[in-house]
Design a protein around this nucleic acid. Structure first.
Lengths: 162, 162
DNA sequence: GTAGAACCTGAACTAAGGTTGAGATCAAGC
DNA sequence: GCTTGATCTCAACCTTAGTTCAGGTTCTAC
């Protein structure tokens, strides 16, 4: 019998969950405050986690790697029926969704990467002309007329290069 | 003559720089406090930016899109000779470096994405076995013996699926 | 029955990247 | 000369994802 703590280790202490899942005790406390995981309390007010908490914490970690904020993880866990421990079908749905998020983020980065490639030799960084700089600055939205033609910024900042 | 503010608009006010670069005035103040951009002051203590500040702000924004923290941008700008406005050769060097960072981040996300693909049908999320969950948890490091064989967690958490 | 490890709570702190607000000053147009 | 908009500084606040600390309790082992 490895632990006298909880008979046959059907449940985990916070320290055990921390060690097995690779997150710190303080992070587990934090997740619990945020409603991401739940525990029962012993008569001495200590937390005891079902083994399924391992699964939930694993899911939280994977979601974080995929760039999903904890708040969103909390929402999807809260939306699960009953016990808010995802089963295989829940996971299938969630992971498809998060994979799609991941795909979008990857596509954005690839796009940026390509533009870096294009611009390395140019180096203009023009607010108006550079494909790398421009994407957020919707041309013409902030003023009348074709800004490109009006203020003629172009790649003209470059007398600096010896 | 568009502006009486600074003769032929050789310099930009903070509001003008904000509008042209797409960042807020408060962000520009912040960048200045962080040493990312510099300005001269008028007799009335107002900031005036050289047009090259547009270029620097553009570079900051691009770096941010690429996931480079401002502190690092600050370091590289501070390392530039003289005026800390990057010229074409500086940009070439920086952009190669940041493109490499980007490549690494993309590779990580692609790896994660693949693992999502593998695991969608499995759904085990096992701390010990799942390729998706495991990467941070260096097997065997935290205890003697091969954990995979010893504690036999496997994909055994799944009685929950109806 | 006691030492020491593990646990509890609540509050304060961290880091990054800013935003918001108050109160004062500056600049531009009529 | 006055109003209005832009700007100034400084301090406080925001969000995310936790960590750290103090002071107190519980558990486990010898």
């Amino acid at each position: 019998m490895p632990g006298t703590r909880n008979e046959i280790a059907l449940e985990l202490t916070v320290g055990q969950l921390a060690e097995r899942s690779g997150v710190t005790v303080s992070a587990l406390h934090f997740y619990e405050r945020q409603g991401l995981i739940t525990s029962r309390r012993t008569s001495g007010n200590q937390r005891r986690y079902a083994r399924s908490a391992l699964r939930t914490v694993a899911l939280i970690r994977v979601a974080q790697r995929a760039g999903i904020p904890l708040a969103e993880v909390g929402e999807v866990l809260a939306a699960l029926p009953d016990r808010r421990v995802p089963n295989r079908r829940d996971w299938e749905r969630l992971s498809r969704r998060w994979q799609a998020d991941l795909d979008r983020r990857i596509a954005e980065l690839l796009d940026l990467r390509d533009k870096f490639g294009d611009c390395i030799g140019c180096g203009c960084l023009s607010i108006d002309l550079c494909r790398l700089v421009n994407p957020w600055d919707e041309l013409g939205v902030r003023g009348p007329g074709p800004r490109r033609l009006i203020d003629g910024e172009a790649c003209a900042d470059e007398r600096d290069d010896g």
